[in-house]
């Protein structure tokens, strides 16, 4: 056990602040087990060294990974269903009606993690549009090279496909590959992957009709949030749609967005005249 009491306490407070989840004393083994791979990946000897390095040099990306590692085992498919219901219920029909048939629809999954979000989008649009493979292009980006590679591979463990993927979609869009499940080649071809740091100048991409930027802003300070929202807006079509995480908003951060209520959730659209 290399985890010091101070490190454990710091992690507890962080996780509580960001997720409202309480790590009881005695859960040191859990922190150790979940964070050790991340420490080793960074060439550190233990979890306490990882915590020390983040405390000395605050780093939103690493902080986010720490919280994620402790709060979820696997990313869910259709995570917080509302932004996906809105995609097929409102956003896609309005985009299809407003664009010429030969115009491509560009969707950006801006923090794609291990790929559940971009492939959820791919499944939905391929069920909703007969010519989805030709018509829709999905760009999946993440800060982490490992996550980008996982998304590109499109392979998921048994535990991952159990997380909120409807069984009917599993059998339609995946095939077994050893003890993993592999997304169908048609859907994988719709998704282009690349590394991207949202807190820095963005690569040439887009313009996007829809952007999923969920559970990213919460980890950054106000100035960085504003910078991210500004750069994302520059890559969006004027009539595009932005989806944020359930606990996130542009209100009070960046006035250049208009909030639109869609079903039980909401989306944000670039405000006209900016």
């Amino acid at each position: 056990m290399t985890l010091t009491a101070t490190s454990f306490d710091w992690v507890r407070q962080l996780v509580h602040k960001e997720s409202a989840i309480v790590l009881q004393p005695g859960k040191e083994y859990l922190v150790e087990a979940r964070l050790l791979p991340m420490a080793q990946q960074r060439g550190l000897t233990g979890v306490s060294e990882l915590v020390e390095s983040v405390r000395n040099r605050p780093d939103a990306a690493t902080t986010r990974r720490i919280v994620e590692a402790l709060t979820t085992n696997e990313t869910s498919w259709f995570r917080d269903g509302d932004p996906f219901t809105a995609l097929t219920g409102t956003v896609l029909p309005s985009l299809v009606a407003g664009r010429r048939p030969e115009e491509r629809l560009n969707i950006w999954s801006a923090a794609c993690s291990s790929g559940q979000e971009p492939y959820t989008i791919a499944m939905l649009v391929s069920d909703a549009l007969p010519d989805a493979a030709r018509r829709v292009s999905i760009t999946a980006t993440d800060l982490s090279r490992e996550m980008v590679e996982r998304t590109r591979a499109g392979r998921f463990s048994q535990l991952e496909v159990n997380r909120g993927l409807p069984a009917s979609m599993l059998v339609r869009h995946f095939t077994r590959a050893g003890n993993e499940w592999e997304i169908s080649p048609t859907l994988r071809r719709m998704v282009t992957t690349t590394e991207c740091n949202l807190a820095a100048p963005l690569p040439r991409m887009g313009p996007f009709d829809v952007v999923y930027l969920r559970n990213v802003l919460i980890y950054f300070d106000m100035a960085t949030k504003q910078g991210i929202l500004r750069r994302v807006r520059q890559l969006m079509r004027p009539d595009g749609w932005l989806f944020l995480g359930a606990a996130e908003t542009t209100l009070g951060v960046d006035d250049n967005w208009e909030r639109v209520v869609l079903g039980r959730g909401s989306a944000y659209r670039p405000r006209k005249g900016n």
Binding site: N73, E74, S76, W77, F78, L159, N162, R163, G164
Partner: peptide
């Protein structure tokens, strides 16, 4: 095998 989280998702 599955987790409680997976049950919640289902």
């Amino acid at each position: 095998p599955f987790t409680a989280d997976a049950m919640r998702d289902k």
